[in-house]
Design a protein around this nucleic acid. Structure first.
Lengths: 222, 222
DNA sequence: CCCGGTTATAAACAGCTGTTTCAAACGTAG
DNA sequence: CTACGTTTGAAACAGCTGTTTATAACCGGG
């Protein structure tokens, strides 16, 4: 099947180029020439560049959401009725995130794509991801809510995004950071090593004491 | 002075457009038309689009580094010889970051630009920022080192980047996150409110227990 | 006044962008 | 083998990109 071959060759090439340079900075001609595929093939198989971008994400996120749902099913079954400890929830998410791209190119590409989806404007992408994969995230946050009943809803919301920021920022800028770290400490860090370092930090962040309440006199400040 | 007027009008317009859409997605024609300035003015006053981008950053980072150096001078003077507590260091940095853009457009733009500098490829930008403003960051990290003698160097390095990720990610994606938070909790968050929430999380992250050492059997994993 | 350097303007430049077109090659079912 | 739907191929499309050019307007000092 030469067709499938073309499609996957485009996806394989596109995902690493997107991850390296961003979406706008990667032209279809760069992709197709590096993939040894005709320029028109992208529009023929995907319809447009936008759809290509979404297809690249779908190839990661489809198996991820499927596995994550299964993992959460399993977790809920093993804690029948009771609430799942926060650390187990975080552990499960981390494990699932690691599993999916392990079979494919690399975690680095996956994380960099996630980072781009956030930081790069690309309104259509954020909408697509929210509509297509928002439900898993909703399910996860609900479980986190049950695991941290002492946190006010707003506080938990922000803290989840704080740690999300840490993870995406770190793993998506991994190459640059790794270069600096290697230059400063001569020590090469693997992704697993980084996750090991991340765990206590994330847990501590979620369990940090509540902030001082806003002094009423200042609550209208800029 | 019509010249200064043109230059600042370009910078004012460029910084918000860059922050909104990214660098590659913002054309010179979009900038100049919205700034009511001739297209050639950018190349005349700045030389190239790259230099325009750097100039946008310089207008934030020049006063920031100056103030931050002064604030650190003051901090060192008040702790003559002794080490400065971590919380004071973080507090000082936060205050300086808040001060600079307060006089100008907004913190949001500043943070979004910082986020772009990291996430957007734009190799020239990272190099420029590193060469031009790396020294303040080096000075700051050295003070953090003295304030956290119990942390191994590598661990401190990574934790600093973890919290940097939290802050940049949160504040640069603030608009989107604020929309979600408002929809979910009806509660409008100000930047100062967010900083208040960030503080205990950042402190807890820096003071989290050390990670379990790598099991030797697994240390060669992916 | 008028000159000389600085700034503004409009037009054109070559190059790259995503997309479309249409003809050729392909592979398979009748 | 023939016919047909699918996939490839090369070329062209209009539009936008950053940059350059040449000309005009400005404006303070001699």
């Amino acid at each position: 099947m030469a067709q499938t071959d073309t499609v996957t060759r485009i996806l394989d090439t596109a995902e690493v180029l997107f991850a390296e340079r961003g979406f706008a900075e990667t032209s279809l001609r760069t992709i197709t020439s590096k993939a040894k595929v005709n320029l028109a093939a992208v529009n023929y198989h995907f319809g447009s560049k936008k759809s290509l971008i979404q297809a690249v994400f779908a190839r990661y996120l489809d198996p991820f959401t499927e596995r994550f749902h299964l993992a959460l099913d399993d977790l809920e079954a093993r804690h029948r009725g009771g609430t799942i400890p926060l650390e187990e929830l975080l552990e499960t998410m981390a494990r699932t995130v690691l599993e999916v791209p392990a079979e494919r190119n690399s975690l680095k590409v996956f994380m960099r794509l996630l980072g781009l989806a956030y930081s790069q404007a690309q309104g259509h992408l954020r909408r697509y991801i929210q509509e297509e994969y928002g439900s898993v995230f909703t399910r996860f946050t609900e479980l986190v809510r049950q695991a941290t009943p002492e946190l006010p809803d707003a506080e938990r919301f922000w803290r989840l995004h704080f740690v999300l920021g840490t993870v995406i920022f770190t793993l998506s800028g991994l190459d640059a950071l790794r270069d600096i770290a290697e230059k400063d400490y001569g020590e090469h860090v693997s992704v697993r090593d980084l996750i090991r370092r991340l765990r206590p930090v994330v847990v501590a962040a979620m369990q940090a004491p509540l902030p001082d309440p806003l002094p009423a006199a200042l609550s209208q400040g800029a």
